Amino acid sequence: MPLRILAIDAAQRHASVTLVADGVALAVRAGAPETGLAEMLAVWVGECLDEGGVVPGALDAIGVTIGPGSFTGLRASIALAQGLGLAADVPVHGISMGEAFGAALPLLQRPLWVALTARRGRVFLERDGVATGFDEADLPQPDGPIALAGEQAGAVAARLAARGNDVMLTDARYCSGTAIAAALRRRVAAGLPMRPAMPLYVDPPEAKLPAGGLRPAPI
């Protein structure tokens, strides 16, 4: 069972790095940097390890959120986690946002939907381990009572409640590093295979090739 876990999350606007030991956060850095996310994450990792008195090679595991979420944030956080794991010879495991929020809310008596920011006019929903993108005006119909978490939970709850659905809005908007670590430990305890640290992309990237195609390679 991994005891010392470095948890990294940049799937949403609010990013974080947390050093967790035996389920307790020893050091936390979090915020919503407007620019320089990749550089800031690396600084936070160094600060958390220094504050916790742990060298990278003494970590038991690195847990990183793999989505759904921001293309830029996922690329930055997963690349950092993989690079650190390779350099320190520490296993790196992917945790979906649904898993992380589920670990943060273990006592729910109803299915959990995690609602996250997508591109304008759309949201990502992770339900029963499956992530899908929806237009805000075309949300799916729940089969029964549900709970909502994630940074778009309030907006989604309002739309579903207006239809008469039984919705419980939790206060979980951003997943914590301790929840990421708990989700990783849950997988180990249940004997489930660990997920690779690969981005869980839902929608295709907004960037498109130029109409005339790419420039030819220089001669």
Rank of each mutant, 00 (worst) to 15 (best):
R159S: 10
P106F: 14
D143F: 04
R185S: 08
L125K: 05
P199V: 10
M198D: 13
M194V: 03
R120T: 07
G102I: 08
E126K: 10
V130S: 11
A104H: 01
L184D: 07
R159C: 01
G191P: 05
Q109P: 02
K208A: 15
G191D: 05
I146E: 03
G133Q: 13
R127F: 06
L200R: 12
F124T: 01
F124E: 03
G177Q: 02
V202P: 00
V123R: 11
P205V: 13
V114C: 01
C175K: 05
V123W: 10
L169W: 03
E151G: 09
A172G: 02
P196M: 08
P204G: 11
Y201M: 14
R186W: 07
A149F: 01
F101I: 02
A137E: 13
Y174D: 11
A155T: 12
L108I: 11
V188D: 09
R159L: 07
L139Y: 07
D203S: 15
A118V: 08
E136F: 08
A153R: 02
Q109E: 15
R163P: 04
A104M: 05
P106I: 11
E136L: 15
P145Q: 11
R127G: 04
P140Y: 12
E206K: 15
R185A: 10
A137W: 06
D138A: 15
T170S: 12
M194R: 06
L116D: 02
A197H: 10
A155V: 10
F134L: 10
G144Y: 12
A158M: 07
G150C: 09
C175M: 13
V167A: 00
L108H: 12
M198G: 03
E99K: 09
A183D: 07
A149R: 00
A149H: 00
A183S: 09
G154D: 15
G121T: 09
L148C: 04
F101C: 03
L169T: 03
V167Q: 00
L169P: 01
L139D: 05
L200I: 06
R127V: 13
D166F: 02
Q152I: 02
F134N: 06
V167L: 00
G150S: 09
G164I: 00
F101R: 00
R159E: 03
W113F: 05
A158K: 10
